[in-house]
Design a protein around this nucleic acid. Structure first.
Length: 475
RNA sequence: GCCCCCAUCGUCUAGCGGUCGAGGAUAUCUGGUUCUCAGCCAGAAGACCGGGGUUCGAGUCCCCGUGGGGGUACCA
């Protein structure tokens, strides 16, 4: 089995393209096949090197490694051209000296099919006339002569497809400037590259009968086709820029994990047939089967991606998350670089934060109170836990600090110390903990307070409480 | 205009004629657990686009309609 992903480099790697690539990749890995990457670069106007780079980067980030390529469609133009002329010699194509505009104009004026106009005009040109026009340097295009009848093929996702050939126009296969046109080029390339399964977007479904006809005219065996549905935005329209991030790279920068993105994309229009949702790459490969690809297009749901990413984040060893967290923290000037340098300390910090974050960006946000020397206070937290009763809050914090400084600085001992104090004072432990949390983190929500204390260490913790008491006393 | 594809909770989906008074996940809302948050546990609300057939029986099959999408290039 040989499959391919053949994007045209018109921009960044779009999530829809990424999913098409993923389905091909999953199929190849599942069946022990070969995944070929081919860049459809024959549209000179839109083709840009940086776009190719972006696509390769996106695929690499997702971990969709290709076995062959990148191949380029432009490498095959000589072959495309030869095949177009072969079809001419065999009478399966004809010369068209007319301009597309004049054919369209006549067709609409007479109310007939453009193909019949093109054929009539071509029939008017004798071989001798053609030869003299060619000698005179007159340009002509080559059109494929669509035979009568109907064309059918089996689609892995849609089942049996059947098209009336009269609805298929005589398509140009070679432009008057001598360059080949897409429909011929793909057929030629897919055959040349030995592609056995063409899995691509639904937007190619209507092109497929043309291509099937070309395969047959050229005498090439047809591959198996499979057309996967498109991805839509929240309003049900085809996913585009105005729906937000559509480039895979956007999710990379937001701190979505490649494994989560792959998991999410795989579940868009496909499911394993049981109720699993959080799946590893290996599980996806093992479970993947193209027959279970849905026919229906689906909406790209950011919320579910975020949830899935949170699940992957929580499962992931903190050490592997560290580079991403550090990279993000390094961009923030308030961060004390010395603190982020300590591997073991950073790992235990990430251990505490990853379970309550949905993206790597969020981990970085939540890490701020620990990696910065000056604390940013959340006004709502201050209002709730300090300002309501400043005198009591300050008193509680002072007594808490005194009790804690008298114990061994470990989570268990600190907890015992604090709870002992609460009992002695006849108040719930929460009464002591809430003002303390604001003092240590500036926030009303954080990891467990005893973990926060041990992570910050006694010196920093006690200094923060001392500072908090000073602030609260001044209220 | 013409051709083609598609249609189950807001969203992702299970369902391949009877076990569906439609299941799971997410999101939302309750309650419980915990020092807060996240999580976890328990619960609530929430869908078969419409109309005709076929059949003893239809979310499941057929037809029409409606809606959405794609194609119809000397773009890919």
């Amino acid at each position: 089995m040989r499959v391919r992903f053949a994007p045209s480099p018109t921009g960044y790697l779009h999530v829809g393209g990424a999913r098409t690539a993923l389905f091909n990749w999953l199929l190849a890995r599942k069946e022990g096949g070969t995944f070929v990457l081919r860049i459809e670069d024959t549209d000179q106007a839109r083709n840009r090197d940086e776009h190719v780079e972006a696509i390769l980067h996106g695929l690499s980030w997702l971990g969709l490694d290709w076995d062959e390529g990148p191949l380029y469609q432009s490498e095959g133009v000589k072959r495309h051209e030869q095949e177009a002329f072969r079809l001419l010699e065999e009478g399966k194509a004809y010369r068209d000296f007319a301009t597309p505009e004049s054919i369209r104009a006549e067709a609409s004026a007479r109310g007939v099919h453009p193909s019949s106009v093109a054929r009539e005009r071509a029939a008017l040109v004798t071989e001798k006339e053609a030869a003299s026009r060619i000698a005179a340097g007159k340009p002509y295009a080559l059109r494929f002569r669509v035979p009568p009848g109907e064309t059918s093929f089996t689609d892995v996702v849609h089942g049996d497809m059947r098209f009336a050939n009269e609805d298929v126009d005589d398509l140009v296969i070679l432009r008057s400037d001598g360059t080949p046109v897409y429909n011929l080029a793909v057929v030629s390339d897919d055959h040349a590259h030995g592609i056995s399964h063409v899995i691509r977007g639904d937007d190619h479904l209507s092109n497929t009968p043309k291509q099937v006809l070309l395969y047959r005219a050229l005498g090439y065996p047809e591959p198996v086709f499979g057309h996967v549905p498109l991805i839509l935005g929240a309003d049900g329209k085809r996913l585009s820029k105005r729906h937000g991030a559509t480039a895979v790279g956007d999710y990379e920068s937001q701190g979505i994990l490649p494994d989560a993105m792959v998991n999410f994309l795989a579940l868009l229009g496909w499911n394993p047939g049981d109720e699993r949702e959080v799946m590893s790459r290996d599980e996806l490969v093992e479970a993947f089967t193209p027959e279970r690809i849905l026919k229906k297009s689906s909406v790209f749901d950011l919320e579910k991606l975020a949830w899935l990413n949170g699940r992957h984040l929580a499962q992931r060893p903190s050490s592997t998350l560290l580079p991403g967290v550090r990279e993000r923290l390094a961009k923030r000037k308030e961060v004390d670089a010395a603190r982020t340098a300590d591997d073991a300390w950073m790992e235990s910090l990430v251990d505490l934060l990853k379970v309550r974050a949905r993206t790597v960006d969020e981990i970085a946000d939540q890490a701020m109170p620990y990696v910065c020397d000056t604390l940013a206070f959340d006004e709502a937290a201050v209002a709730k836990h300090w300002r309501k009763d400043p005198a009591r809050s300050a008193d509680y914090m002072e007594r808490t600090a005194a009790a804690l400084s008298a114990t061994e600085w470990s989570a268990a001992a600190l907890e015992e110390g604090l709870r002992g104090l609460a009992e002695e004072m006849g108040v719930g432990a929460g009464k002591l903990i809430h003002p303390l949390r604001v003092a240590l983190t500036g926030q009303s929500a954080s990891p467990g307070i005893f973990d926060v204390l041990t992570l910050l260490g006694s010196a920093r913790s006690l200094a923060r409480v001392e500072e908090a008491v000073r602030l609260v006393r001044a209220m």
